[in-house]
Computed example of a mutant assay.
Amino acid sequence: MSNKITIRLPDGRRQTFEGREAWTLRHLVNAGPAGITTLEQPAPRWSHYVFKLRRAGLIISTDRESHSGPYPGSHGRYRLETPVTIVSEDAA
């Protein structure tokens, strides 16, 4: 089974994403206004998949957040700002 998601944009256009871009978009939609971080949903190359979704025209904001622990630093919280409606999805 493939990993595919089709969304409808506010202007009525549809876009289909496959693979890791579909996976990332699904997580962004499910996170809603709270957004999501790689600490909450670990996966390689999050920033690259977000980059590809942005390049496809979706607006995704990134807020920097500090974290403590054995390796203190900061991470990004990604939020999907483009209102979308999921038309169909085929999750692996």
Rank of each mutant, 00 (worst) to 15 (best):
L9D: 03
H75Q: 02
D11K: 05
T62Y: 02
S88D: 15
V50Q: 03
T37E: 07
G32I: 10
N30P: 00
H27R: 15
V84D: 10
R8G: 01
S68M: 06
G12W: 12
A91E: 14
L53D: 10
L28Y: 03
I86M: 05
Q41M: 13
I36N: 04
L25M: 06
S61C: 08
S61I: 09
L25H: 12
S68G: 15
T6N: 08
S68E: 14
A43N: 07
Y49E: 09
A56P: 03
R55T: 12
T82M: 02
T24P: 02
P72C: 08
V84E: 08
T82Y: 06
T6P: 02
Q15M: 15
R26E: 13
P10Q: 10
V50P: 05
P33F: 00
D11N: 15
T16F: 04
I7Q: 02
V50L: 08
Q41T: 13
L80R: 00
I5H: 02
I86S: 10
K4F: 00
Q41G: 00
P72F: 11
I5F: 05
R8P: 01
T85W: 01
M1V: 11
L80V: 01
W46C: 01
R14D: 03
L53F: 10
L28N: 05
R79V: 14
R54Y: 08
S47R: 10
R54P: 07
G35L: 11
F17C: 11
H75C: 05
G76F: 10
R64N: 04
K4M: 13
T62L: 07
H67G: 09
T24C: 15
Y71F: 06
N30V: 00
G73T: 09
W23Y: 13
I7P: 03
I86G: 05
A56E: 05
W46H: 02
Q15W: 07
A56C: 08
P42W: 11
A31Y: 07
P33R: 09
G32C: 06
L25K: 11
K52D: 06
P10H: 08
T37C: 02
N3T: 04
A34P: 02
G12E: 05
T37W: 02
T38D: 11
L25W: 09
A22H: 11
G12K: 10
D63V: 13
S47D: 06
H67K: 11
E40D: 14
L39Y: 03
E18L: 10
G69H: 06
H75R: 07
A91C: 12
S2E: 11
S61P: 08
E40R: 12
F17K: 06
T24R: 01
S66D: 15
R55V: 09
V50W: 01
S88K: 14
L9I: 00
W46D: 01
Y78I: 07
T38R: 10
P33I: 02
E21C: 12
L53K: 04
A31Q: 10
L80K: 00
E89N: 04
Y78M: 13
A43R: 15
T24W: 00
A22F: 11
P33K: 13
E89A: 13
I60P: 01
G69C: 01
L53R: 13
